[in-house]
Nucleic acid binder design. Structure first.
Lengths: 245, 245
DNA sequence: CGCATACGGAACGGTCCCGTATCGGAACCT
DNA sequence: AGGTTCCGATACGGGACCGTTCCGTATGCG
């Protein structure tokens, strides 16, 4: 095991070496498994997907070659392509951003910025690849959805509910629809745009624009409606905060 | 030619039979090409993609089988998979909705409704498939983008510019960002959601919410800001129109 | 009618991949 | 040292697909 683990251990850093699949018994007798081979394979998959490969082009042979690993070593750790892809997904399951709860607006900005960051690099490449194969590999998509999407969606809904309680968000619209207003533009741009140096407007602008739209209308919503023209002026930049808790 | 053209000619209806690729000379001598085979192949590709097949699973043999057509017949009309896919994309190039220009809001609703409709059926399946393979097949994605995306994006921008001229849309934000606010939620939901009976909030709600957010803020934007609390009340349903021209 | 061409079907050689097996060597435990 | 296991590499039989070519048949033009 020399050629593996050549890349900067992006994954290896976040995973305890040795906890990879397979019968890694404690009282093992012979030569122990290389701690680097597993992460090297995961990393190779991510590198290939990032390079634009679709799932169909991800042959086990190519993965092993890219990882600098024998094919048998891959099969020794994973039962097949499905099990491997599952662990690739889990390797991307990083905790979400801290939401201090001080300001709904700031939490939304943090969430969207986190989403954009995750959707920018290899996360975006994987998301695109999986979206394209969601029909062909439903359980893989379900795994992705349950592992990476659901938690963040729940976090977003929690923030939005706080906004509703504060009176910053109108109650006469479905909360899921409002959530789509925030995440939709970020996801759509990540998925569809040139995704190589694509221009990105700041998350703060997006949040401010949408917040303006989902604010309770006068004479309708429940809570206290902030002053109608209290918004920031016309200037650019992420000027004043609005409606803190 | 008996088994082809079995499906309801969804594509054949919109294409002049006989204009399909290949040396279809006018003064041809022998047996003329079947007018049904070409559309049957296109239809088969769409059917397969709609059924969840990724590009890698779209073998020429499977396409021919699905179309009830010999493989040689496919190769007689198209030089290969790339040329075939190009024509599949073009078969989906339907004209956009009529934008009467009477109301910016109504035009936006019409555009989004059209977008959602196109992104709901086979258009959505093809979009997902292509997004997944955009890295592997850049020229195919470029063809899709130029054929189907660009025109509608330009139409949307034109409507938004009218909104700017009317004073319905603030000028201190990038128009592309504002366009993303409208299209992003629709596209993201079409691409990511369960896409089998996925719940959809009406386009009108989306337009009204976003329009509220992109309205010029008091004391800043150029045009006349419509009355602050002029919006519709809290009720559900697609109530009153706002800010007609 | 007769010919030219298209048709569906089947086969070709070639390439790639799968999942398994086997190799010589290397690493680790007892 | 000896035994055991993992390592990368390579080879295997089986299968799918590619793009082409050849059938025997069907069909329309001149």
């Amino acid at each position: 095991m020399t050629r593996a683990a050549a890349g900067s251990g992006t994954v290896a850093d976040s995973v305890v070496a040795g906890e990879w699949p397979g019968p890694a018994a404690p009282g093992r007798r012979g030569r122990p498994r290389s701690a680097a081979a597993g992460p090297a394979v995961i990393e190779a998959v991510l590198r290939l997907v990032e390079g634009g490969a679709s799932l169909g082009e991800l042959s086990m042979e190519r993965i092993a070659r890219e990882a600098g690993v024998g094919k048998a070593t891959v099969y020794r750790r994973w039962s097949g392509r499905t099990a491997l892809m599952r662990d690739v997904l889990r390797s991307l399951d990083v905790p979400g951003p801290p939401l201090d709860g001080a300001s709904v607006r700031d939490d939304l900005v943090a969430l969207l910025e986190f989403l954009r960051g995750g959707a920018a690099g290899r996360g975006c490449a994987l998301l695109r690849t999986l979206v394209g194969h969601a029909g062909a590999q439903p359980e893989l998509w379900a795994e992705y959805h349950d592992t990476l999407v659901r938690a963040r969606h729940e976090a977003l809904l929690a923030v939005l509910r706080r906004g509703v309680a504060n009176g910053e968000i109108r109650t006469d619209r479905d909360l899921e629809t409002i959530a789509d207003l925030f995440t939709g533009p970020v996801l759509a741009r990540a998925l569809l745009q040139e995704w190589h140096g694509a221009p990105r407007s700041p998350s703060a602008d997006l949040v401010d624009l949408v917040l303006e739209g989902v604010r309770p209308v006068a004479g309708a919503g429940a809570g206290s409606t902030p002053g109608c023209s209290a918004g920031l002026g016309g200037g650019a930049g992420g000027a004043g905060r609005r409606g803190a808790v």
